[in-house]
């Protein structure tokens, strides 16, 4: 089992307020890792530290040591742009660009110079859309606007867009919270298919979803990592009483 991301003693502050306390966690290459916990527990915040999306919040400050394949991602030498290409992200609400489906997927490869010609770009777009399980539905209307798709399709388009830059890790921040149950099921299937090719970290407020899609689960509470382990163990045999309380629905 290889460790893709290792985080050690991570603290995150928003101004004076501490959002994450002393979190240490290792993310496996081969597994889907789920972050669960009540709202405001810091699971999304922590997710965003993994590709430095927190840099966009002026007041945010990150302490600690986070490494991708052993490289310190907060070091001065790390180019944040390349980091985000390697650690892709899918957001809570589908956010396609108001451009064509093709352009949505092709944008990333283009800015990173991953394709040297039209045919290569076409291949990347087709492959990404296929992997995101969207190709069959959109192959005849690639020039339609991405915003004209249904919510579930939009979210799969966003996943295709993330895949297109050939990332090593995909972070998903509650990717199904804005979708209906059928679209959710499609995304969950998709996560299942993508497993192994990419390290996947998914934040969810839905415990059944975590149980369905992940192999590892981390439970966050009030900015702390309470418990982290195999999903089966967490849900059937939690060690911490707080985890038990949350899973049995006593709060959350």
């Amino acid at each position: 089992m290889t460790q893709k991301i290792t985080a050690h003693d991570v603290n995150v502050f928003y101004g004076e307020k501490q959002a994450i306390r002393q979190v240490s966690i290792d993310i496996d290459q081969e597994d889907v890792t789920a972050f669960i916990g009540p709202s405001g527990c810091g699971k999304s915040t922590f997710l965003r530290t993994l590709n430095r999306m927190n840099d966009t919040v002026a007041s945010a400050r990150v302490e600690g040591d986070i490494r991708l394949d052993g490289e310190d991602i907060y070091s001065k030498d790390m180019d944040v742009v390349q980091l985000r290409a390697r650690v892709g992200m899918v957001f809570q609400k589908p956010n396609p660009f108001p451009k064509s489906i093709y352009e949505n997927v092709a944008y990333g490869p283009r800015i990173h110079g991953l394709a040297s010609g039209k045919s290569e770009m076409d291949a990347i777009v087709e492959q990404s859309l296929t992997r995101a399980g969207l190709w069959a539905e959109v192959k005849d209307r690639l020039s339609d606007s991405g915003t004209a798709l249904s919510g579930g399709q939009q979210q799969r388009l966003c996943i295709a867009r993330a895949i297109a830059v050939d990332p090593e890790v995909i972070l998903m921040d509650e990717p199904c919270s804005a979708l209906d149950p059928i679209a959710t099921a499609r995304i969950e299937e998709l996560i299942h298919d993508l497993r192994g090719r990419y390290a996947i970290v998914i934040v969810t407020h839905n415990m059944q979803q975590a149980a369905r899609v992940s192999q590892k689960t981390a439970f966050f509470h009030l900015g702390e990592l309470v418990e982290y382990g195999d999903t089966n163990d967490i849900f059937t045999n939690p060690r911490e009483p707080r985890t038990t309380d949350y899973i049995t629905g006593r709060y959350g």
């Binding site: 966009t56 985000r84 957001f91 609400k93 956010n95 108001p98 990333g108 800015i111 966003c158 867009r161």
Partner: peptide, 27 residues
């Protein structure tokens, strides 16, 4: 221009200048 567009571009590794000149400015 909604912030989600900026997040989307940043999330796949566009630099701040690329985010603005490729997405925000045209919109």
């Amino acid at each position: 221009v909604p912030p989600s567009i900026r997040d989307a571009a940043l999330g796949i590794g566009a630099s701040p200048v690329q985010v603005v000149f490729h997405h925000v400015l045209p919109l």
